[in-house]
C-alpha cells in the first residue's frame, strides 16, 4: 500500500487510537438450539468467552461445532438464543456498524462495481461524501485491488472477490471484525497470501478480530488465542494461548509444536464424540 493511501486511512479515522482501546467482547453463558423436524437440537451449550480489545481470537472446530452459529449471534444476525453477549458495555440486540462481518462467500452485490460494493459499508456512516470516497479508495489499495475498482464481481477471481469483501467489512472501521471462514473456498496459495495480508491489516488497524475456521494452521498462524470448540452440543473444549511474536513465520518451531497440540485436542474431542466414536461407526 502506498504512503498516501495509509495517510488517507489515518486521516479517515481520527479515533483509530480510541478504537484500539475498545472492541471488547463478552459472551456469557450463551446457548442456542435449532428445531429440526420438531425436535430441538443443541447447537451451542453454555459458551462463555471474553475477547480483549485489539485481540485476534480464532474459533476452531470441526463442522457442526456451532462456530459459525456463535459468530452470527455475535454479529446480531440471529437473536434467538439464551445468555448474553456484550460489546463495550452494550448488549448486542441487533446488527451494528461497530461490528463488521466477512462471510464465507464474498456476498458482493453482482450489479455493483468493486468500488460501489465497498462503499456499501459506508452508506450509513456519519461522514461526508468526499471522506467516503477517500476511504473507499484507501481500502481498495489496502486489500491490493488497485486497478479493479470499476470491475464487476463476475470479472473477479474468488480471491479478489474475497479481498473486496474484506475491504467492505473494514471500510467503516468497526471495533470488532468477525470473519466466518473467509478463506475456506480459496486455493491454498491464495489462502496463505490472504492470511499474511490479514495479519498485516490487523497489526496496522488494531481492530479486534474473531476468525472462525476449521483450518488448524490458519488458527495458530493468525490467533493470539485459539479457542477449540467441540461439537454436539457446541461448547468450548480448550483455549490455547499463542505467544509467538509477530510478524509470524509459518515454520516457527513454537507454532508447529502448538499446532500439533491443537490437533491432538481436536482428535481427542472427535474420539469422545458419540456420533464419531468407533462404537457408533460400527452401528452405521
Amino acid at each position: 500500500m502506498s504512503r498516501a493511501a495509509e495517510r488517507a486511512i489515518r486521516a479517515e479515522t481520527p479515533n483509530a487510537d480510541q478504537a484500539a482501546a475498545r472492541g471488547r467482547l463478552e459472551v456469557r453463558g450463551v446457548s442456542k438450539a435449532f428445531t429440526v423436524n420438531g425436535a430441538p437440537i443443541a447447537a451451542l451449550n453454555d459458551v462463555s468467552l471474553t475477547v480483549r480489545p485489539g485481540e485476534f481470537v480464532a474459533l476452531l472446530g470441526p463442522s457442526g461445532c456451532g462456530k459459525s452459529t456463535l459468530l452470527r449471534l455475535i454479529a446480531g444476525l440471529d437473536r434467538d438464543y439464551k445468555g448474553c453477549i456484550v460489546q463495550d458495555g452494550e448488549a448486542v440486540t441487533s446488527t451494528s456498524l461497530e461490528r463488521g462481518i466477512v462471510f464465507q462467500e464474498p456476498r458482493l452485490f453482482p450489479w455493483a462495481t468493486v468500488r460501489q460494493n465497498i462503499a456499501l459499508g459506508l452508506k450509513n456512516a456519519p461522514i461526508s461524501e468526499a471522506d467516503k470516497r477517500a476511504a473507499v479508495a484507501a481500502h481498495i489499495a489496502l486489500v491490493g485491488l488497485d486497478g479493479f475498482a470499476e470491475a464487476y464481481p463476475h470479472q473477479l477471481s474468488g480471491g479478489m472477490a474475497q479481498r473486496a469483501a474484506i475491504a467492505r467489512g473494514l471500510v467503516n472501521r468497526p471495533r470488532l471484525l468477525l470473519l466466518d471462514e473467509p478463506f475456506g473456498a480459496l486455493d491454498a496459495l491464495t489462502r496463505a497470501r490472504l492470511q499474511t495480508e490479514l495479519q498485516r491489516i490487523w497489526a496496522h488497524e488494531k481492530i479486534t478480530m474473531i476468525l472462525v475456521t476449521h483450518d488448524v494452521d490458519e488458527a495458530v498462524f493468525l490467533g493470539d488465542r485459539v479457542v477449540v470448540l467441540a461439537p454436539r452440543p457446541g461448547r468450548i473444549s480448550r483455549i490455547f494461548d499463542v505467544p509467538a511474536a509477530r510478524p509470524r513465520a509459518r515454520s516457527d518451531d513454537d507454532l508447529v509444536r502448538l499446532r500439533n497440540e491443537v490437533l491432538r485436542t481436536l482428535e481427542h474431542d472427535s474420539a469422545a464424540d458419540p456420533q464419531l466414536s468407533p462404537g457408533s461407526r460400527r452401528d452405521a
Partner: peptide
C-alpha cells in the same frame, strides 16, 4: 445472503428498496 449484508450495514427501508431489492 445479500439481505443479511444489508442488515449488517444497517440499511434503512428505502435503502433496502433502492440498493438491494430493486437492483
Amino acid at each position: 445472503k445479500l439481505r443479511e449484508v444489508g442488515e449488517v450495514f444497517r440499511f434503512s427501508g428505502p435503502q433496502l428498496v433502492w440498493s438491494l431489492y430493486l437492483p
